[in-house]
């Protein structure tokens, strides 16, 4: 049975699209047929992060309006088997989305795919509601920073009140916490919230901790999901998170600073 995963956060700029691209690609690498949908109508960016921006002809909104067929709008990834992207419109706005229109397309996708990832826009307005309404799972992307944690709490409240599962009294949306831009050095200095603090406050299961890493910007510059950079710690952390999503027991990595030699310590302290 196909599952719908919504990548959401409330706050903007915390890494929803990066995480959608990475988790979606990670699921496809594991052999699951996966489609990632960009719900940020008017601010299309998933295509850039996935490196397929020059192949967009039709989009999600065209399909909703019956101007194109789903298969015409889906873009097949050139690197990873089983991976498809459904870009959104750059010229329309959120009002082009309707619950019924989105629901119809998701139903159609569910026949063909194992996982459908909805890359939500920031905010708690229409676009975000459309992205979370049909969700089976919600991955809440949070930075260890006060405004991001607060907004994550807010969006969790919205999921618990306004999703289809909540409205129809079904089994609730499964929530997962993905902490991104985690800087162990700053955590160690007491400058940044620890992942345990964020967990204690939000109280939902932890899917992964993605370390602050130059690999993320490098990957987005060239249009490659960072999970494909398997040498980078961020790429490995995303791959781990995908494994955990699939039910594997994988210990969290990159949560302690790298061990430094005595010489390093002395040099740092006197520098």
């Amino acid at each position: 049975m196909a599952k719908i995963i919504t990548m959401t956060s409330g706050k903007g700029g915390v890494g929803k699209t990066t995480s959608s691209a990475a988790v979606g690609t990670g699921l496809a690498l594991r052999g699951f047929k996966t489609c990632i949908i960009d719900f940020d109508v008017g601010l299309r960016n998933l295509d850039l992060i996935m490196g397929c921006e020059r192949r967009v002809v039709f989009d999600f909104i065209n399909v909703i309006n019956g101007e194109a067929r789903l298969n015409q709008a889906l873009i097949k990834d050139k690197r990873v088997e089983n991976l498809y992207i459904l870009p959104t419109s750059q010229t329309r706005d959120k009002d082009a989305l309707t619950l019924e229109g989105v629901g119809k397309i998701l139903d159609e996708l569910k026949k063909e795919f194992d996982y459908i990832i909805c890359d939500s826009p920031a905010g708690i307005e229409k676009g975000a509601l459309m992205a979370l309404y049909w969700a089976d799972h919600a991955i809440v992307v949070t930075n260890p920073e006060v405004s991001s944690v607060r907004d994550s709490d807010r969006i969790l409240g919205v999921i618990q009140a306004k999703s289809r599962r909540a409205e129809q009294g079904l089994e609730p949306v499964q929530e997962h916490l993905l902490v991104t831009r985690y800087d162990v050095e700053r955590v160690e200095k007491g400058e940044m919230l620890k992942v345990d603090d964020v967990l204690e406050i939000l109280a939902i299961p932890l899917l992964g901790i993605i370390p602050e890493s130059p690999a993320v910007l490098k990957a987005s510059n060239v249009g490659m999901p960072v999970v494909l950079d398997d040498k980078s710690n961020a790429g490995q952390a995303y791959a781990d998170a995908v494994g955990r999503f699939l039910g594997e027991k994988i210990e969290h990595r990159f949560i302690k600073p790298e061990k430094k030699g005595l010489l390093d310590r002395l040099l740092r302290r006197t520098a």
Partner: peptide
């Protein structure tokens, strides 16, 4: 050492969220 900046952040969040959740 005295409470860290991160500890202050956590405390502020806990207070504001306790209220926001009850108001929800």
């Amino acid at each position: 050492k005295p409470p860290t900046i991160a500890a202050q952040a956590k405390e502020r969040l806990q207070i504001v969220l306790a209220h926001e959740r009850s108001d929800r």
